[in-house]
Write a protein that binds this DNA or RNA. Structure first.
Lengths: 349, 349
DNA sequence: TACCCTTCTGTGATCGTGCACAATAGTGGG
DNA sequence: CCCACTATTGTGCACGATCACAGAAGGGTA
C-alpha cells in the first residue's frame, strides 16, 4: 500500500531513476511522514510516535537508506571520524610491531560506534603542517597521537588549533593538559627487575629507550627504583628502541662490566639485538646472562630462546584511547588512564 | 584596508566572530571577486585572469582558508578518500607483519594527493555487512582489498555494490574483472628454488600457504615448475602462513622424508616455525638443512641464523595500488600490475 | 468555553561548496 | 556598425542532512 511514486513526474515508464541513492526524503515519502520526523527518528527517536517509528523503520529497510555523512557533517560540524596520527620518522615505524595492534583495536572500537578511522602519517615537518591543516579543516573530530616526544611540536600544533587529542603514553611536559592512555611503565620495569632477581641475578643491566619518551624515561625510573641501593650507573646503556641499537648497547655494557648476569631491555627489538651480541660474545642465554624485554611483540616468541617480556594490553589501550578521546571531544574533562603491564615468562630468563 | 565586517550586523563591537572557519565567501570578499571565481581557481585555475589568481592566492594565505571537504563531497559525490580494507580473521593479522608497510605506503601516497585513508576491518560476516554498507554510503571512492581468498564473498559484495576495488594479490577466480597489484609469486618461488639448488641442495621441500590465496597457489606453482622432473609430492606440506603451522609442517616433512636438505617456506613466519622444529630435531641450519622464506619481513633478520628470503617491494606495491585504484575510480580500464620479488641472501642457506 | 501543557509533526532556513548558465567586456572580421 | 567569438566573471540552484520554530491534536483544569 502507498506504493505510489511522486505524482506528476514526466515518465520514462516504470523505473525512471535507475540507481540513485535514497535520501531522507525518499524515506519520508515511503513512510508517509515528513523528513523532519525521519531526522528525529535517526537521531535518537525522541518525540516520534510509535506508529511513525514503525513506518520509518520499514521504509528504511525497504529503500536501503543510509544517511549521507557528508551532508550530516556539513550541518553539524562533526566528522564522525578520528585520526590515528603516526608521528615517528620512517625507519622506526617500519620495524616497529607495536602500533599494529593499536591501530587494529582502534579501528574496531570506532567501527562499533559507526565512526571512521583516518590514518595520518607525519614524519617530516612538511607532513606535519599538512596533517594539522587537514585536521583543523574539520575532517576529524580528534586525534590519537601515537608516539610523542617531550615538547613535541606536533602536539603543540594540535593543541594550538584546538584539536582534541589523546596521547598514547604520558605526554612528557604536558601531562595535565592532554588526555592520555599509557601502560604502567615504571611498574612494569619494576616487575621485570623483581623477576630477574627472583631468578638469582644480581648484576642486572638495562638498555633504555630514548629518554625524551615516556617509555624510555619511566622504564628506567622503575628499574632504578626497584634496584634501590644496588643501582649502578655503569650498568645502564641507551638505545633507540631498534634492534641495532640494542646490539650496540650490549657491546658497550659488556665492555664496561664483565660480570653482568642479566639485561633488561626496554623493548623486545633491543632485547633481540642484545641477544645477538651476547651470542657473538660466546655467552649463553639464559645460562650466563638472562634477558628480559618489554612489549611482548610478535618478535618475542620467535627469538631463540623465546623472550621473557612485559606484555602490553594493546587491545585495552586502544579501546581506552577511543573512549577517552570521544569524551574529550564531547567536552569532558582531561583524564589519564594507566593500565598494568603483565609479566610473560619464557625461556630467556 | 577593507577591514570592514559585514555591515548591519548587530554589534558586539570590534571582533564579533571570534573564530569561525573562513569559507569560500570570505576569500572571495577578501580578494574582491565572487565565489564562483574562487571556486574555479581552486579547481584548476582555468578561466581565471592572472590578476584574480594573484588576489585570490593572497586572500587564501591571509585568511588561512581551507576548503570544507564535506561540503565539497556533498555536491561532487566524491569522498576524496580510499579505504584500506583488511579482511583477515583476527588471529592472523595480529601476527602478520606484512600489511604494516603496505598501510604506511598507502597512507603516504594518499597524503601526497591530498586524500585520506580510511582503515576498515572486516573479520566477521557482520563486520563485512557493516563495512560494505559504509562504503556504499559514499564515504570512500574505492577500496584496497588486502588479503583476498578465492571466491571471497567480500569481493563479491563490493563488486555488486559497484565499489571500485583494487586487490592486493591476484584475486583468484576474478582475475580479469578486478584490478590488482601483486608480486611475481611464481617467479619469486622459482628464484628461491634456483638459489637453493645453486647451493648444492637436491632434496628441496616446500611449506605452502593456503591454496585458496594467490600467494599460496602461485608460490607452489613456481616451486613445481622450477623443480621440473625433480618434483616430489612427498616433499610438499601445507601451512596457514603462521609460525605454528610452519613448525607442524616441518615435523610432517621430516617424518615423510628424512633426506631433506632444504626447505622453502612460503612465508617468513612459517620458516621461523620450521627452523624451530629443525633445531628440536637436532638438525643444523644451514649445514644440514637450508631454509628459505618469503616476504622479507622484519622477522627475517631476527632469526638465528638470519633468514634468506624473497623481498617484497611493499612500498612500490602500495604506491601502485593507490595509482591503479584512482585510475579505476576515474573510469579507466581494469589493469593488473605484477612486480618482481628480489632474493635476499642471508645465513640460513 | 477558554486556556495551558504535553506530545507529535511539518516547514523554512542553513551549512559550504561545485556547476550550469547568463552576462559582460574586449577583439577582429565583414 | 554589427556580429561572432573568446576570455572572464557573477548568480541561482542543488547536494542531503540538522535544527529552530511554529502549528496541530489531545487532555486536564479553571
Amino acid at each position: 500500500m502507498t506504493m505510489n511514486a511522486t505524482p506528476g513526474t514526466p515518465g520514462s515508464g516504470t523505473t525512471e531513476a535507475p540507481k540513485r541513492r535514497p535520501t531522507i526524503n525518499d524515506v519520508a515519502e515511503a513512510a508517509g511522514v515528513s523528513r523532519g520526523t525521519v531526522s528525529r527518528y535517526l537521531n535518537g527517536g525522541k518525540w516520534v510516535s510509535p506508529d511513525a517509528q514503525e513506518a520509518i523503520h520499514r521504509a528504511i529497510r525497504r529503500t536501503g537508506y543510509r544517511a549521507n555523512q557528508h551532508a550530516r557533517s556539513l550541518v553539524t560540524g562533526r566528522a564522525n571520524a578520528l585520526a590515528f596520527l603516526l608521528a615517528e620518522p620512517q625507519d622506526r615505524l617500519f620495524a616497529d610491531p607495536t602500533y599494529t595492534p593499536l591501530l587494529r583495536g582502534a579501528a574496531e572500537a570506532l567501527t562499533r560506534r559507526q565512526m571512521t578511522l583516518n590514518l595520518l602519517v607525519a614524519s617530516t615537518p612538511e607532513e606535519r603542517e599538512n596533517v594539522v591543516a587537514y585536521m583543523a579543516g574539520g575532517h576529524v573530530d580528534g586525534a590519537m597521537l601515537i608516539s610523542s616526544h617531550e615538547n613535541d611540536p606536533l602536539l603543540d600544533l594540535l593543541l594550538s588549533h584546538g584539536i582534541p587529542v589523546v596521547s598514547c603514553g604520558l605526554p612528557l611536559g604536558r601531562t595535565d593538559t592532554v588526555a592520555s592512555v599509557s601502560v604502567d611503565e615504571a611498574g612494569g620495569a619494576r616487575a621485570m627487575v623483581a623477576h630477574l632477581r627472583s631468578r638469582g641475578r644480581r648484576r642486572i643491566a638495562m638498555i633504555t629507550g630514548p629518554l625524551d619518551q615516556p617509555g624510555g624515561r619511566y622504564r628506567l625510573q622503575g628499574y632504578r627504583e626497584e634496584l634501590g641501593a644496588d643501582f649502578d650507573e655503569a650498568l645502564v646503556a641507551h638505545g633507540d628502541w631498534g634492534r641495532e641499537s640494542g646490539s650496540a648497547a650490549m657491546t658497550e655494557l659488556l665492555a664496561r662490566a664483565g660480570d653482568i648476569d642479566a639485561v633488561f631491555a626496554a623493548s623486545d627489538a633491543m632485547a633481540a639485538g642484545a641477544m645477538a651480541t651476547l651470542r657473538r660474545a660466546g655467552l649463553r642465554v639464559p645460562d650466563d646472562v638472562a634477558v628480559g624485554g618489554f612489549d611482548d611483540s610478535p618478535l618475542a616468541v620467535n627469538l631463540d630462546p623465546p623472550l621473557t617480556t612485559m606484555h602490553q594490553p594493546f587491545d585495552r589501550i586502544s579501546a581506552e584511547m577511543v573512549a577517552l578521546l570521544l569524551e574529550t571531544v564531547a567536552g569532558g574533562e582531561i583524564k589519564s588512564v594507566i593500565l598494568p603491564a603483565r609479566l610473560v615468562v619464557r625461556a630467556s630468563t
